[in-house]
Simulated scan of single mutants.
Amino acid sequence: MPFQILTPKTARQRVQVLLSGRAAEICIFGDPSSGAGIGAESDLAQATNLALAIERKWGFGESGLIWDSGTANEMWRLPEKERRRVERHLQDASSRALVVVTENKAQIVDLAEHLFRVREMSTRDIITFAKQITGEMTVGKAS
């Protein structure tokens, strides 16, 4: 993944996106599965690493202007106060993701059902589908 510059806002949004699949499971099925947290490259691991970076690498959190090379693997070595701040970033992002998913539950279910039927979708297919379910596209209109 190429290096990307993040702001505090975009970093928090990225954490929220990473936790959106888990939020969708909670919204649709009532509980999350272990899928979001399987392995070091999982969405939950990536979200944790971003939350740690917000607090300990980029100076975006309450920890101040410090830099630390810590990763999610070392999370439990942090002082409790810092772990709580990282957890708060994750909980806040998870709550925001759940709100967005809940507000768009019908569209998510429609997309899942459509994907189940067609099995795969290109970026263009997803954009076209999104326009259709949000009413932005009329029959015969070019995208």
Rank of each mutant, 00 (worst) to 15 (best):
residue 15 V to R: 01
residue 76 W to Y: 13
residue 51 A to M: 02
residue 74 E to R: 15
residue 69 S to N: 11
residue 2 P to E: 07
residue 125 D to N: 14
residue 105 K to C: 05
residue 87 E to H: 10
residue 44 L to M: 10
residue 86 V to G: 01
residue 31 D to I: 13
residue 84 R to E: 13
residue 120 E to Q: 14
residue 126 I to K: 14
residue 18 L to M: 12
residue 89 H to G: 00
residue 12 R to D: 02
residue 142 A to E: 07
residue 61 G to I: 00
residue 98 L to I: 06
residue 4 Q to D: 09
residue 7 T to Q: 04
residue 136 E to Y: 12
residue 23 A to Y: 03
residue 138 T to C: 06
residue 137 M to W: 09
residue 40 A to M: 08
residue 121 M to A: 11
residue 82 E to Y: 13
residue 140 G to V: 06
residue 40 A to V: 10
residue 51 A to W: 01
residue 40 A to T: 12
residue 39 G to Q: 09
residue 123 T to P: 05
residue 83 R to A: 08
residue 72 A to V: 08
residue 23 A to F: 04
residue 83 R to F: 04
residue 127 I to T: 12
residue 6 L to A: 05
residue 78 L to T: 13
residue 67 W to K: 10
residue 106 A to D: 11
residue 4 Q to N: 10
residue 16 Q to Y: 02
residue 35 G to I: 07
residue 16 Q to F: 01
residue 55 E to H: 01
residue 38 I to Q: 10
residue 35 G to L: 10
residue 5 I to R: 14
residue 118 V to S: 14
residue 3 F to V: 11
residue 89 H to T: 07
residue 42 S to F: 05
residue 68 D to N: 15
residue 63 S to F: 00
residue 31 D to T: 12
residue 87 E to P: 01
residue 110 D to Y: 09
residue 6 L to G: 00
residue 59 G to T: 03
residue 138 T to I: 13
residue 132 Q to A: 11
residue 142 A to G: 09
residue 54 I to Y: 00
residue 60 F to W: 04
residue 132 Q to H: 11
residue 33 S to K: 12
residue 46 Q to E: 07
residue 28 I to P: 00
residue 78 L to C: 08
residue 116 F to P: 00
residue 1 M to G: 12
residue 137 M to R: 13
residue 9 K to D: 05
residue 38 I to C: 06
residue 60 F to Q: 01
residue 31 D to Q: 15
residue 95 S to T: 09
residue 120 E to Y: 15
residue 102 T to I: 00
residue 94 S to C: 03
residue 22 R to W: 05
residue 101 V to I: 06
residue 142 A to V: 08
residue 90 L to V: 07
residue 20 S to R: 04
residue 79 P to I: 13
residue 99 V to C: 03
residue 87 E to N: 11
residue 55 E to L: 03
residue 98 L to M: 08
residue 68 D to L: 10
residue 91 Q to F: 06
residue 99 V to F: 02
residue 8 P to F: 01
residue 14 R to V: 05
residue 35 G to W: 11
residue 9 K to T: 10
residue 102 T to M: 00
residue 107 Q to G: 10
residue 67 W to V: 12
residue 91 Q to G: 02
residue 24 A to Q: 07
residue 52 L to I: 13
residue 6 L to N: 03
residue 112 A to M: 13
residue 73 N to W: 15
residue 59 G to Q: 04
residue 88 R to I: 05
residue 82 E to N: 11
residue 49 N to G: 04
residue 61 G to V: 01
